[in-house]
């Protein structure tokens, strides 16, 4: 099963990526071929096979409800590309 341009546009949007028309074309070709290859899994009978998310099968890994050390605000400020009054600045959202 391949992939069409409309779908490429849709997933690029979901992934917050901007593609040029050339890139769209290239991705359509390359992802189409890769997805065609992925169809190989169709050969398998997977009806009663459980999915694997973790190889080691651990469960219930938790920590105690204790407060620990936080960053100094200056560290957060240092990281942020735009910063004002102890806040990270972003384009207006509403």
């Amino acid at each position: 099963m391949g992939i069409d341009k409309k779908t490429i546009k849709g997933i690029a949007n979901l992934a917050s990526l901007k593609l040029t028309p050339d890139e769209e074309k290239l991705m359509e070709d390359q992802l189409g071929r890769i997805l065609d290859y992925m169809d190989i899994l169709g050969e398998l009978n997977l009806t009663d096979v459980p999915p694997t998310s973790h190889t080691l099968g651990f469960t219930n890994v938790t920590r105690k409800d204790k407060e620990g050390k936080c960053f100094d605000v200056s560290v957060v400020a240092e990281l942020a590309p735009e910063w004002q009054d102890d806040h990270v600045v972003v384009p207006r959202v509403v």
Partner: peptide, 20 residues
Amino acid sequence: SKTFCSCSTRYGERPNSHTC
């Protein structure tokens, strides 16, 4: 503390001071 880290959940503190 928070769900997945040990930062405090206290309300009304200096902005971005409870981060890691």
